[in-house]
Design a protein around this nucleic acid. Structure first.
Lengths: 205, 205, 205, 205
DNA sequence: CATGAATGAGGCTTCATTCAT
DNA sequence: CATGAATGAAGCCTCATTCAT
């Protein structure tokens, strides 16, 4: 109704974003700990330190919370990987190494979300799943390009680029999916190192 | 209280086993189609053509049904892979190829169960999860041995055998997990062929 | 699965019908006492002496219960009125008197449901409302025919038959709608008698 | 604590009244469209172009809004009908015609509120309902007096005056309650005309 | 063995109302 | 005056599980 100082609007908007993030963080934690279906909306509210009702002012429903959680991490993949690859310069192999290292690092930061996207993605509605697939394809794209560049330049053999990307992503996700086993004998850096050696060893001429 | 002819007992026992299998099949189908949590026991009963009550004569509860479904497939891995490897003779690479081909083939036969074991394993109780992990380790074992044999014989480089097995299993599971994408450009045999080329290419001296 | 003696099937079907009727009766009572929206499904279950869950084996949801309640009484109108009119013979006025008397009598038996159909009908979905309108038109039909017969035979003036029926129904419903006021100075028979005198007095030549 | 110019007080008071009326109008619209229970206070605020909180500065709670809406229209009946009857002079029949015509006209102006008073009156608390009954009786009173005057003067038969009033009110309300059916073959004036002919035909000597 | 009617705890979600700004 | 973020009680409904037949 009234004109309100811009600063106030910004403050409100920022506050709203912070709230949204708080709720999402609580949800991701609990989804990871107990699974999506065993997590109640009340539990999310409690963990976030708010009331149940408030969840529904930031998210349409529980599934929305799940989708937001998964989209959140996949979005981070999509955004951070190209940056990391560009910082590595033009060499295809260097780009691949940097991108993969970043991918696994992000997964290691939020393993919950990665596991979630495997475990609960089919819980989502058709639209939600399609959104995920789109993000997944977008994440794969920079890797695919680096490999094809490498093939063109002769740095790599004429392998099936899509398949190599598929493997790279699987192996990266594997760090989260099978962490219970891997972490008994490897740390993050060693895992990245050895996997890169294997993958690159397979595609170098 | 009565003595019962043995033949009748056998007939009964067999009938019971068939029933159990029917229920399990219905459950696996529905778990795959709709997810474990969205599948109701009534739906399982309907699909199996029996009444709800009967489910509880063959399985303790719904989670039991899930565990049985997953154990079923993992057990098949454990049993069929050593056989396939033995049929391939003594050469480590041949054994690896045969074992991997069989692994992917079994997964292709019942992709549902594979996906299930990723998606719902955390739904299980502590005991159920431990049982799965045990089966997973047992499945990995023959692969690990073949690789170590190959390393010893000089057929393979001195790679981290456990890591290579980890990758082999991930890639095999990947056929089920990412079937929606892979099947757009590959068939089963090509997938097995190309993956073997990549993996073996990485570990050959 | 098995063939079952017909008698048993009948017994079950009958039992089911009784249950349905019990639940419906409890619901109508409570809807009348407290209004549809103030009546909880738990309250209905308690009144019916069953558990909440059972309601949902006989009715799809709460609205379904409301629709069933209203359809129930409107159906009774539709069925009992033609019978009463036929018992009255051929004379249009006698038929009208008998039909109206029956209408008010049925309303007096279950005033709740009549009030419900006024108060809550718009709570229903489009389909539910259409079903009600159809029943209402069917209830009106025999009255309309009697009046038109009377007009043709010269027993009644050339009045707007539809309007007279509209009035008859309103007045009959009025017995339930304004019972709190009417019952302070009239009983059922007197109400019927006097209203018939008024209505017939208005349409006689 | 400050003395405030009277003009300002008036301006404020008027502004407040306007706000109240705006809110009430929004509420009546929505109550009619969706029913009282399906209308949320947020929806009322939106429709009125204000915030939820403001509603509670003009009305104690949601039920208050309903009562105000119904009292509003019933008060209009009470006020306008005697005026219309007085303008018609002394003849009982003329007074009755004028009163009824006005009653139906007011109902036609705000059919929502009439329907509301049937549909939701039981939603009100004891006090609210009693207030409605009082208003209803007050509305009926001038009609009753006209009929008794007519009976005394010999213009009408010795009918049950209260019952005739009951019918008049029912028939008037019927215009709103059954508008969906009536409006398919009648307009307002015809309805008034024909109903008056029927009712007066029934009570003329 | 087999049935399926019955149970009831518990989950998701809505929405009237408040209060700090 | 006015806002709208926040609350939390309460309702509808589902569904795993039992048990009398």
């Amino acid at each position: 109704m009234h004109d309100v100082p811009t600063k106030q609007v910004d403050a409100k908007a920022e506050r709203a974003l912070r709230r949204r993030a708080e709720i999402l963080r609580a949800a991701v934690q609990l989804f990871q700990e107990d699974g999506y279906h065993s997590t109640t909306t009340h539990a999310v509210a409690d963990r976030a330190g708010i009331s149940v009702g408030l969840i529904y002012q930031y998210f349409g429903n529980k599934e929305d919370l799940l989708r937001a959680a998964i989209v959140d991490i996949l979005g981070e993949f999509r955004d951070r990987i190209p940056v990391a690859m560009d910082e590595a310069g033009d060499d295809p192999e260097a780009r691949l190494r940097s991108g993969f290292r970043t991918l696994v690092a992000v997964i290691d930061e939020k393993p919950e979300a990665t596991v979630l996207s495997y475990r609960e993605s089919m819980t989502l509605s058709r639209e939600g799943r399609d959104e995920l697939k789109k993000l997944e394809v977008e994440t794969a794209e920079p890797f695919r390009r680096a490999i094809e560049d490498g093939i063109r330049s002769g740095a790599f053999r004429a392998v099936d680029a899509d398949l190599v990307v598929h493997n790279l992503l699987l192996v990266a996700h594997g760090w989260a999916l099978k962490h219970w086993r891997l972490s008994t004998w490897l740390d993050l850096d060693t895992y990245v190192q050895r996997e890169l050696d294997l993958v690159l060893g397979a595609i170098r001429p």
